[in-house]
Design a protein around this nucleic acid. Sequence first.
DNA 1: TAGATTGTTAATCGATTAACAATC
DNA 2: TAGATTGTTAATCGATTAACAATC
Lengths: 207, 207
Amino acid sequence: MVPIPTIKRFPSYLRLLYHYQEEGHQWISATTLAKELSFTAVQVRKDVSATGVEGKPKIGFEIAPLIDAIRHTLGWDCQTEAILIGAGNLGSAFARYEGFSSYGFRIVAVFDNDPAKEGLLLGSLQVQPVTGIASYIAQSGVDFALLAIPASVVQQVAEELVQLGIKAFWNFAPRNLKLPASVLVQRTDLSTSFAVLSARYTAQKAR
Amino acid sequence: MVPIPTIKRFPSYLRLLYHYQEEGHQWISATTLAKELSFTAVQVRKDVSATGVEGKPKIGFEIAPLIDAIRHTLGWDCQTEAILIGAGNLGSAFARYEGFSSYGFRIVAVFDNDPAKEGLLLGSLQVQPVTGIASYIAQSGVDFALLAIPASVVQQVAEELVQLGIKAFWNFAPRNLKLPASVLVQRTDLSTSFAVLSARYTAQKAR
DNA sequence: TAGATTGTTAATCGATTAACAATC
DNA sequence: TAGATTGTTAATCGATTAACAATC
């Protein structure tokens, strides 16, 4: 299995590879990648080797196959469709965000329990009432949900969605979900990220 | 120094400690914390020891001092004020987000280079033209900026802000910033988080 | 006293980094 | 050939986990 830290670096590699490709390059060395991304060249080679791509001494790696291999390792060569639960501040931003497409991710429906939001247009998606979730999942076969709802309700909503067939969650509410082990959960939480910055900021100020 | 993984767990501890405090508890054991958060009890004790708080055998840790110690370690006992650059989808969501206050973080001004957005009200903040950034920084002494602008311009904007006195960035654009070592940069990037989820999802499907 | 818990030291595990042979 | 680069093996580093004494 590919180590998590390596997977976290893959999106940065991808962006840079696309950039070099657009500039007309066909090959790139680990040395160059490392310099651009402030990694070490050894780390780049180790990361690349996890994709199975092999380079040529003195030249480096061929860009196009490397892009394909990283996309494949991440699963970004297949389209992943998800429903979005919650059309508040953050939910609205996600519904309108166009950057998802570059990682094969697409929000196909938005639900909110506020009747006042029904029909509201977010990008190209109309907010639907939560009463329609069950039939939507049944019909579409979607098994991936993005949770942009308050922490106080996220556990209960997630449990209901599991009952309806959802197998993976991207949870933006600041609460740990307790779900069956077969269900994938990834939490993306502003507070975690801010904690690191804040602790470093405070430590620096103290100096 | 407190290890980064420990710092990342602190916000989860804090939320649970507040919850127990509100329910009228005065003490909590590492065992209980561990069970609630799906950590091990040893890890909880190690994390707590990094704050300097000591527990009582057979009882556990006193909640109020532990909250204070974690908040202090993170620097969340001091107010941090920041300006927000960019009032697009994500920027607007941040400007309106009320959860920041619980970690001592406050956005005090929002700037956008689109004249059409000038004066727009986001929560309690009015979008200001970017021409006013220099004087705002000079007058307020703010040294923290949140970047919610496109990747294509973020490097240049950040460099300009460093010139104006900004010392720390929370960068939401998917690009690595190259700035002087004295400047703190934390990137929070949807693609990194999604990469981990996506790779796990794909690995699971393959099984 | 017995038993649950804390706190620390040592062992383990996993990722990063260093060293170096292989290649073009 | 010389030199830059790849790829791998071994060493290092840091965090997690195990073991166990100390405490109430």
